[in-house]
Design a protein around this nucleic acid. Sequence first.
DNA 1: CTTAATGCAAAATCTTTGCATGAAC
DNA 2: GTTCATGCAAAGATTTTGCATTAAG
Lengths: 143, 143
Amino acid sequence: MHGTTLGEWRPTPQRAAVLQALTACDGFTSAQTLHAALTADGVVVGLTTVYRTLRLLEASGQVDMVRDSDGERLYRHRPADGHRHYLLCRRCGLSLAVDSEEVERWAVEVARVTGFHDVDHTLELTGVCDNCHAGRDGGRTDA
Amino acid sequence: MHGTTLGEWRPTPQRAAVLQALTACDGFTSAQTLHAALTADGVVVGLTTVYRTLRLLEASGQVDMVRDSDGERLYRHRPADGHRHYLLCRRCGLSLAVDSEEVERWAVEVARVTGFHDVDHTLELTGVCDNCHAGRDGGRTDA
DNA sequence: CTTAATGCAAAATCTTTGCATGAAC
DNA sequence: GTTCATGCAAAGATTTTGCATTAAG
């Protein structure tokens, strides 16, 4: 506690670049993909810094994190209206924010009933979007 | 398809041991922990086999899998009444099966509204159980 | 000037794969 | 006798950490 309102860390071009690149992305992005995009964009930033920045952003609630089927962390800039859940297309990666009020309420109820404290929840929906389902180009069994 | 009803693979002592050990566990267990338990129990089985067996069990729906906060895969023998969700205590690892009918229905509705196909969902609840919350013995920040 | 961020390389984890041996059918 | 499972060791992958350099306050 030194006096600053919130977000205690030091502004740097790298951090700005990471957040901006993440905001520019439509869906969820991995640290590695983000780093590649930045590099391709001419921005020189270390992979390490990308990882560190994403962790900070997640900790400060500025981004959402989910895990893909391999356990890889995927990040997305949070739309500024708080907690959100997404429906990801397994084929094309399309992400849709879904209304989860019902689930939120359910989670609170579960916390109350079970007597657990500080209950947090992670919810990941995956499927095949109508578009991909229509023109099934692959033939992939599970990926 | 060779004629067998279901569960196409070959019965071996190792596979039996893994499934039995998993069943004996109360909560969720990682492959490594399970392997350690088996070894401690005098059962000689390779870590590789544990991994492979758990994947088979998951694929055939005999076990549930969640991921802890580090992305590590945790397995649990499925109680025989299908799809389940759990509430895990971050302190002691206690796992509670929670009734998720509401969420199941919600997921189906989301699938319908969005036009997605084969929608699957992963839901993980974590918190601090009343017991741990009462007698906060540690002071651990995250592990 | 002091404190913190960067970035490279190396480490640490969990998980999967190659290949020879042994078990199951 | 053929086919599949096992297990060791090595590879693969993602993410974190050590440490000197450089930038920010």
